[in-house]
C-alpha cells in the first residue's frame, strides 16, 4: 500500500508510569490506513483503551511516535515548511479525529442541538445556521430528529451514544475513535449503536474501535488487533484472528469470550 494511504502511523508507542514499573503501553507499532475499520480487542487492563486515547493525545505517551498525516503529534514543537521549530497546534489535529467515549460525555447543560453545534460554531468551522442545519440532518439520519431540543438527561443510553457519534461527525473528522462505545449500554440498546457504526463503516469512514463486541469485530472490522499487557500480540483479518488464532493468549481469551 502506498505511504500516503497511511493516515496514522504509530511507532513503538510507550506509556510508562513510575519509572517503567507500570507499562500501560509497551512498544505498540501499527499503521492505520484510510478506510480501515480496525477493531482492538483484549482483556481489561491490556492497554487497548490507553492505545486508543493516545491516538488523539487524550493520554500523553512517554515514548514513541504518532504520525498523523506524517506529522509527529507527540512532539510539542515541529519544524514548519522553512524548517523552523514551531509550536504544534494539537487542537487543529484533534478536530480531524472524532472520539466517542464509553460514558457518552454529552454536555448535560446543553440541549442535543447545542451539544452538536457548539464546537463547529466556536471553532468557526460553520455559521450557526449552517451548523444547525447540518446537526438536524445528522440527527435525522440516526433517527433522533425529534430530540434536538431535549437535554441529554432525557435520553436513553443508546440515544445518548448515537448523539455522541453524530456530535463527533459534526467536525467532519478523517478518523473516528471509539472507546468501548457499547460497554455502558443496556443489552437491548447495543444494537442501535452498532447499526450507526456499521453504516459509518460502509460509507468508508476510517475507524478505530475498542470493543468487546466480537460479532461487530468479525462482521465490520477489516483488521483486528489483539492486545495484552501493553503489547499487540496478534493482528490480522477477522477471519484469521477468530478462526485460526495462533498466540496461546489469544486462544485462551477467545475461548472465554466467544
Amino acid at each position: 500500500m502506498a505511504a500516503n494511504d497511511k493516515l496514522i502511523q504509530v511507532k513503538d508507542l510507550k506509556k510508562h508510569y513510575n519509572k517503567g514499573v507500570i507499562r500501560a503501553l509497551d512498544g505498540v507499532t501499527v499503521d492505520i490506513c484510510k478506510g480501515d475499520v480496525m477493531v482492538v480487542i483484549g482483556p481489561s487492563g491490556s492497554g487497548k483503551s490507553t492505545f486508543l486515547r493516545s491516538l488523539n493525545l487524550t493520554e500523553e505517551p512517554t515514548g514513541g511516535e504518532i504520525l498523523f498525516h506524517g506529522v509527529d503529534i507527540t512532539k510539542k514543537k515541529i519544524p514548519n515548511e522553512k524548517g523552523k521549530l514551531v509550536k504544534l497546534d494539537l487542537d487543529k489535529h484533534r478536530q480531524k479525529m472524532g472520539m466517542v467515549f464509553q460514558h457518552f460525555n454529552l454536555f448535560p447543560h446543553k440541549t442535543i442541538l447545542e451539544n452538536m453545534t457548539l464546537a463547529p460554531v466556536k471553532l468557526k468551522k460553520l455559521s450557526k445556521a449552517d451548523a444547525e442545519a447540518k446537526a438536524k440532518s445528522l440527527l435525522e439520519r440516526v433517527g433522533l430528529a425529534d430530540r434536538a431540543a431535549a437535554y441529554p438527561i432525557q435520553l436513553s443510553g443508546g440515544q445518548k451514544q448515537r448523539v455522541a457519534i453524530v456530535r463527533a461527525l459534526m467536525m467532519e473528522p478523517e478518523v473516528m475513535l471509539f472507546d468501548e462505545p457499547t460497554s455502558a449500554l443496556d443489552p437491548e440498546m447495543v444494537g442501535e449503536v452498532l447499526e450507526v457504526m456499521k453504516e459509518l463503516a460502509s460509507e468508508g469512514m476510517t475507524m478505530v474501535v475498542v470493543t468487546h463486541e466480537m460479532g461487530f469485530a468479525r462482521e465490520v472490522g477489516n483488521r483486528v488487533l489483539f492486545m495484552d499487557e501493553g503489547k499487540i500480540l496478534e493482528q490480522g483479518a477477522p477471519s484469521e484472528i477468530f478462526d485460526s488464532p495462533k498466540h496461546p493468549r489469544l486462544q485462551d481469551f477467545l475461548s472465554k469470550v466467544l
Partner: peptide
C-alpha cells in the same frame, strides 16, 4: 467532559 470538549478540538 473536558476530554469530550478537547477531542472536538476546543
Amino acid at each position: 467532559q473536558s476530554e469530550a470538549a478537547r477531542s472536538l478540538g476546543l
